[in-house]
């Protein structure tokens, strides 16, 4: 039984190594750095509002829409960061619209949309969006960069 367990561990390791290589290849092929843009979602520290869904538009075109499961929301609340969109855009100025929908502990529905401008240069563009409920001390949707 132990022999098999070791073989299972070995194959896990091999498949992970394939996944790593494939990931790199895929990124190079599908999202070259000069056009690559990625949007990451995180939830502000200590936030307990229930995030239901997020919609992302770039230059007016919807590029991502995500409905959150309980597990996903919990992962965000515990410091996880979700890559909600990976894509390609030209260098230059762009517009990002973020809409979020959720519910407060009181049961009140919340929804907010915010627009931001960002510049895409030749290196990959990583855009961070931090969400909080609009009535809290921080702004509802904040843009950051990595």
């Amino acid at each position: 039984m132990k022999g098999l367990d070791e073989q299972v561990q070995e194959i896990k390791s091999d498949v992970l190594s394939i996944a790593t290589e494939l990931n790199t290849l895929e990124e190079r092929l599908l999202f070259p750095s000069n056009t690559q843009v990625a949007v990451f979602i995180s939830v502000a520290e200590g936030e307990e509002f229930r995030l239901d869904a997020v919609q992302i538009k770039i230059d007016g075109a919807p590029v991502a829409h995500h409905i959150y499961s309980f597990k996903e929301l919990e992962a965000l609340q515990q410091g996880g960061v979700q890559r909600v969109y990976s894509g390609n855009i030209r260098t230059g100025e762009h517009e990002l619209d973020v809409s979020m929908y959720g519910k407060l502990a009181s049961g009140k529905d919340v929804s907010e949309t915010a627009s931001f401008r960002f510049t895409k240069n030749i290196e990959p563009k990583l855009v961070g969006v931090t969400l909080a409920h609009p009535n809290s001390s921080s702004a509802g949707i904040q843009l950051g960069e990595w």
Binding site: A19, S42, K71, L76, G80, R83
Partner: peptide
């Protein structure tokens, strides 16, 4: 948090998707 991909690995791990978490983190570390 300075590296969103590290945060992404945590996101997967917190949901119990350890393969995906390791895949992400292995790429970052490499």
């Amino acid at each position: 948090l300075t590296d969103p991909y590290f945060g992404e690995a945590v996101y997967y791990a917190q949901q119990g998707y350890y393969f995906e978490a390791l895949e992400r983190l292995d790429v970052e570390l490499a």
